[in-house]
Write a protein that binds this DNA or RNA. Structure first.
Lengths: 361, 361
DNA sequence: TTGTAAGCGTTATCAC
DNA sequence: GTGATAACGCTTACAA
């Protein structure tokens, strides 16, 4: 009876090969290393784990040799599955074209790399739906934690997975709620100091070229701006404030619209990109910087130092924020308690666009 | 005998709970969903997989209901383990502060997101050792493929994992070898055209402010530059060529060093960041752009349009390269054959820094 | 110090 | 259409 014979063959194959799914030649695994080194899989695992577990030098040597010989690459998926830890965190960024966020990411990556953890990167393009989707993906991938860049609102909305405690997370940027940890700059003080700098230079007619209206970081800067005006007995007028988006072009158009008969002698821009667009427009209107109009920005992106005139700006410590955010996340993952809020000060960098030395001269 | 009683209890617990390792309340899995929905795990899996496998509407409904009710989040680690596919690719970038790479990454991310695949991001800071390490990490994470940004050399060096075929990969940038797929711009032609533009404007005294000496993209641009000079009977002199790094400051210093008695009327910069630094130095030397010195850059980073004078530059299609790179990688993963090389043309954007309209006026 | 074997949470195979 | 159950490749009790 051929049927029975065949069954017997299959049985024997199964016994010896212990592989049913993939024909025979699967990727090389820990078992292969163990066999080659003449030790058990446990010993291989322990050797490679590198924690303090005792392994004889002899065994270790043989294992390492086989690993190299067979070109063994451990499978982190299987590792993650058993350890319920992936050494991976997700980073969600609104927009990488903004050098500010690029710097934040670099800070994050730096600390992550130092701690042997990888980064899954998501770009949302300021799209809240994409962000929800990204969070889902990250949770499915069982990241150890998530870093959300950009001040935004209601992370608990929609899926609510984060606020539900499904994964530890840190917000990099100002946010309204206090019940999850965040790292950001003191935007209020930054706004205040930038304004004070211009006031000290004798300016009375201001324009704040803002970003989006509901942008917490920006709102704080504006609040600082207003507070400083009040402090100096300068009345705030609604038309001193123009909202827009984050990009150069929009700022350029807004400023061009104001025309040569410019309503202010000093412009504060919501960030450096906005400043860049605004300055270009001012130049194109035939006005001089800083003589006719002074500019101050926020962020200190790499290019602002090399503009001519160079851009006076608040040096928002993006990289530092990214790095600290990652450190905080690591602490949370380790089970430590962390400050619900970490705030960094921003330095004022006086450069040509504000003519910072005009009065002193 | 209390000992035996205790043992009996444990046994029973094990039988009912079927969980030995983690006390009891593990994360909710597909089994829990199956139980709650009153179907088998197979049915749950099939429902969630969403491929064409037949599942009765009734079962599907119950499953979906339980999924939502229990807030089930599938575990991609386990998925990846059985499917030997992770829907994740690694992206290795030399430096995110360079907006060029930021744009490339955005292009990659865009196509990736459209295809439901995630990106593990690595920043090497132009450090070759870090890159090797990153590749190791990515292979351990069993990414479906790897995208390496930045033209560099010998990816097969060191570990040799990539060239060994351990994972499909695509290089985004020019490289010497032809035996793996790459996507990049036609840097030679870009260099040629940029130069021709300046020649057409009447320039004869050139300076090429290059990046690092062994930077394939840059070398090609320089080759195009030289070819164009030859074509126009302008003799190339070694001192027309200055190497450096990718950043603004270095370029600034190099140009400042040349002094007011500037050796050229036209400068080609290896990229826009270099141009930015160079232009700042020229201005600081008291020279006018473009009247005394004309500038042309490469990349068309966002800021170059808003400089005053704005920067004439070759519009290297970074985003497009990123997007196409991702598409190529997806094709490789799908088992299709792909072109070993995909090359994009760059457009010349004439702006103020070259005084592009000077002759026509 | 070492080995054995039971998971980890899925998918895929095979039988019904 | 549906359900058991054996992989997937590793870690980690537990036993030796």
């Amino acid at each position: 009876m051929p049927g029975m014979v065949k069954l017997g063959q299959m049985e024997r194959e199964r016994m010896s090969e212990k592989r049913t799914r993939r024909g025979g030649e699967g990727r090389i695994g820990i078992r292969d290393v163990a066999r080659d080194a003449g030790v058990s899989v446990a010993t291989v695992s322990r050797t490679l784990a590198g924690d303090g577990y005792p392994v004889s030098d002899e065994a270790r040597r043989k294992v390492l040799e086989s690993v190299k010989k067979l070109n063994f690459v451990p499978n982190d998926l299987a590792r993650g599955l058993t350890q319920s830890r992936t050494n991976t965190v997700g980073v969600i960024v609104p927009n990488l074209v903004n050098l500010y966020y690029a710097r934040v990411v670099i800070g994050v990556e730096e600390i992550a790399a130092q701690n042997g953890i990888s980064i899954i990167f998501c770009n949302t393009n300021h799209n809240i739906a994409k962000r929800e989707q990204d969070i889902n993906l990250l949770l499915q991938k069982r990241v150890d934690g998530i870093i959300i860049c950009g001040s935004g609102t209601d992370y608990e909305s929609g899926s609510g997975r984060l606020a539900n405690g499904n994964a530890p997370f840190v917000v990099l940027g100002r946010n309204e709620r206090l019940d999850y940890p965040s790292v950001h700059a003191d935007n209020f003080r930054a706004g205040y100091r930038a304004t004070q700098h211009l006031v000290d230079l004798g300016h009375r007619q201001f324009l704040f070229l803002g970003g989006p209206e509901k942008w917490p970081d920006g709102s704080d800067r504006i609040a600082g701006f207003k507070a400083c005006l009040a402090e100096n007995d300068i009345e705030f007028q609604q038309d001193m404030l123009l909202f827009g988006d984050f990009a150069e072009e929009n700022a350029y158009q807004r400023v061009l619209h104001l025309g040569r008969n410019f309503p202010a002698t000093a412009v504060l821009a919501g960030n450096d990109r906005i400043a860049l667009g605004g300055m270009a427009a001012v130049v194109d209107l035939g006005l001089r910087i800083p003589d006719d109009v002074a500019f101050v920005g926020f962020d200190n992106i790499a290019t602002s130092h090399y503009l001519r005139p160079s851009l006076t700006t608040m040096d928002m410590p993006a990289r530092l924020i990214g790095a600290e955010g990652m450190r905080v996340l690591l602490r949370i993952i380790a089970g430590e308690t962390v400050a619900s809020r970490t705030v960094f000060e921003a330095d004022l960098l006086v450069r040509q666009s504000s003519g910072g030395t005009r009065l002193q001269a």
